[in-house]
Amino acid sequence: MGMSVTISAASAQDAEQILKLQYLCYQDEAELYGDYTIEPLTQPLDDLKAELERGHALVARLGDEIVASVRGEADETGTARIGRLIVHPRLRGHGLGGRLLDAIEEHFARDAEAAATRFRLFTGDRSEGNLRLYRRKGYEAVATERVGPRLTLVTLEKAA
């Protein structure tokens, strides 16, 4: 009998599991860009805990295991910045990333304090899977920025 994946708000107690999953998930990105010093691989636990306190984060659980996560923060201009959408490698390709993205967008669109009018996220220009997902979900590229010899970030947005 299989278990179903449940999505819920992350708590401070989830920080260590999220950080371990983040480290696992960003190995492919590090390899793709030839850079194992990217921030998701070097982020300290205390920084992640502070992020969780400041913004909103969701986790997807399979039983007790966190298998996916996403984080975001809204600013005073009505922009919700979404980041660190991660899915365990063994569960990729089953729609979990899209479900998490929909769920965090819904949170920021209906949160009275945040009142997001647009969503913004970014990914590397060679991260084709990420770009495909974001475009499928209605995001459009609005800017590119070369941040290193091997990395150009693509910023994508969509209206809430």
Rank of each mutant, 00 (worst) to 15 (best):
R118F: 01
G95I: 03
D35C: 10
G63S: 03
A10Y: 08
L131C: 12
I104Q: 04
A30P: 06
A116D: 07
A116N: 06
F119I: 08
K137W: 05
I38Q: 07
A9I: 04
L96M: 05
E16L: 13
D75T: 04
Y139N: 10
H107C: 06
R99M: 01
R81W: 14
Q27W: 01
Y134I: 06
D64F: 05
F122W: 15
G124V: 07
G93R: 06
I82E: 04
I82V: 14
Q13P: 00
H94P: 00
T77M: 04
E29Y: 13
G129A: 13
D64A: 15
R135W: 03
P44F: 09
A60I: 06
D28W: 04
F122H: 15
C25D: 01
E16F: 05
D35F: 09
P44C: 11
G83F: 14
R99E: 08
R136V: 04
D111R: 04
D47A: 15
R135E: 15
A143D: 14
A141T: 13
F119N: 02
L21H: 05
D46V: 08
I18L: 05
Q17H: 10
A109E: 10
R90D: 15
H88A: 14
E140R: 15
L85M: 09
E76H: 12
A109T: 10
R61E: 07
D64I: 10
A12E: 15
H94R: 12
R135M: 01
R99I: 00
E29M: 09
A112K: 13
D35W: 09
G78L: 05
L101T: 01
E76T: 14
V70G: 03
K49C: 05
G55C: 03
Q13V: 02
A10P: 12
Y26V: 02
I82M: 04
P40K: 02
G95D: 01
